[in-house]
């Protein structure tokens, strides 16, 4: 045992010890935990969905996700729905592991059915669905057995629209524009530019156009995306998830780029 108390027991990392309370060369190695091999419950995502986008607009919220479920870099399932209605007020969009998402769908369906059969006419508000999911996700991360998803929850209740995010760590937040995964880098700036400060005036057609164009940009830039996607709309009258929309795309520009098109040399 050395004389630096900070080196005792499990090593810390930069994020915690950013003032170098012990010398660099003394810093313990990562991944040398004696028990790391003992329990195998930590996982990695297998079949995954990419970005989900969502915005607020005049009549409620809109959410978009493509229909691809990838197996690593393989485009494995090309017609998977990643938007799910929870009752009549809420829609859930999922990126990350698709089997974990299907597990969540089953869980939420049971929750909604139980609430229906209670027969008192109560339905869950989007905020309540979001809070419930946050609790589930946080509880699972705390058991070191996470549900490997980043989820968007959106809906309308009593004239107020709601958009929230939850991920595998149980991290939550709300904003008028949200995006998961690659979309948080590529599409979110576009969405913010179009939506922020205009949440209460943005028309349905404009909202749909903004999402469609963002999905197009994502398709060109995200290798794990597809030009086939769905848009969910939640207004005071309920949830409406569209049939898949297929974008026409143009690759002629690629002909001139070396290593992109069908060059022979």
């Amino acid at each position: 045992m050395d004389h630096f108390p900070t080196s005792w027991g499990r090593p810390r990392n930069d994020a915690v010890d950013n003032f170098n309370t012990y010398p660099l060369h003394q810093r313990a190695q990562h991944g040398k935990d004696t028990f790391a091999e003992g329990v195998q419950r930590t996982q990695q995502p297998i079949v995954t969905g990419t970005s989900v986008l969502a915005i607020k607009y005049k009549d409620g919220i809109m959410m978009a996700a493509d229909t691809l479920a990838s197996y690593g870099s393989l485009a494995r399932f090309k017609s998977v729905q990643r938007l799910h209605a929870v009752g009549r007020t809420t829609v859930l969009g999922a990126s990350g592991d698709m089997s974990d998402f299907q597990y969540l769908q089953g869980m939420l369906d049971e929750l909604v059915t139980d609430e229906f059969t209670a027969g008192d006419g109560n339905e869950f508000a989007p905020q309540e669905v979001h809070e419930y999911l946050a609790r589930v996700m946080y509880a699972r991360r705390s058991k070191m057995n996470p549900l490997w998803n980043a989820l968007l929850v959106g809906g309308v209740r009593d004239g107020k629209s709601f958009l929230g995010y939850v991920d595998l760590l149980g991290t939550t937040y709300q904003a008028s524009t949200l995006a998961t995964g690659y979309g948080a880098h590529i599409a979110l700036p576009l969405l913010r530019q179009a939506v922020e400060t205009r949440e209460d005036t943005l028309a349905e057609e404009e909202a749909k156009r903004v999402l469609t164009e963002s999905m197009r940009v994502l398709f060109y830039r995200d290798a794990r995306s597809l030009n086939k996607f769905q848009i969910a709309k939640v207004t005071e009258t309920g949830v409406d998830i569209s049939e898949p929309i297929v974008l026409d795309t143009h690759w002629s520009f690629a002909e001139g780029i070396r290593g992109y098109g069908a060059q022979t040399q």
Binding site: A15, G31, A36, R141, L169, T171
Partner: peptide, 14 residues
């Protein structure tokens, strides 16, 4: 090389 496989239950949110 040894790979980092453990799920990291923490992040920093600034």
């Amino acid at each position: 090389h040894p790979q980092e496989r453990q799920f990291n239950p923490y992040t920093e949110n600034g």
